[in-house]
Amino acid sequence: MEPIAKNIMVSRFHTISHSATVAEAVRAFKEAGGPGEKRRVFGMMVVDEQGNLIGMLSMYDILLLLRPKHIHIWADMSDIDISGIIDTVCERARSVKVEDIMTTELITVSPDTHLFAILDIMLRKHVRRLPVIDNGKIVGIVYISDLFYFLYDKLAGDGL
């Protein structure tokens, strides 16, 4: 099999609307990674009303939203009672719109992009998933783990 995007990508992909809330997005993560699915989902492609890719929402975007502003100061304040802070922070995050925190600087590949070109982008840009676009349409998504899995047998020396 040729080592190009279309042979490594997942074509049963999930997307989320830009107008969804963080709570809805995380519920979508949970469903997409639910029982019967082979992976847990920590990120998704964000689409507009026409289904065009307009952003990516990752776990990292949500974690940035959660990180308290002054944590570097109060992390040491053992005399301040912060019990319940996790609930408060999560509650505040739930209603935030996906479009306000998503990454809009998109990096995509085409179905014919070579495995090593994908690998290079993933390592340089610190991304673990890349949308595959064909003629402006989303056709799949390549995960770094699938890319590694593609090389499993060769790396292990099995079947030699």
């Binding site: 308290p68 502003k69 002054h70 109060w74 304040m77 005399d79 301040i80 009672d81 912060i82 319940g84 802070i85 408060t88 922070v89 505040r92």
Partner: peptide
């Protein structure tokens, strides 16, 4: 202390 706690919880400056 109460004021600091309030700022931490509301994530405000």
């Amino acid at each position: 202390a109460e004021a600091i706690q309030q700022m931490i919880f509301s994530d405000i400056h």
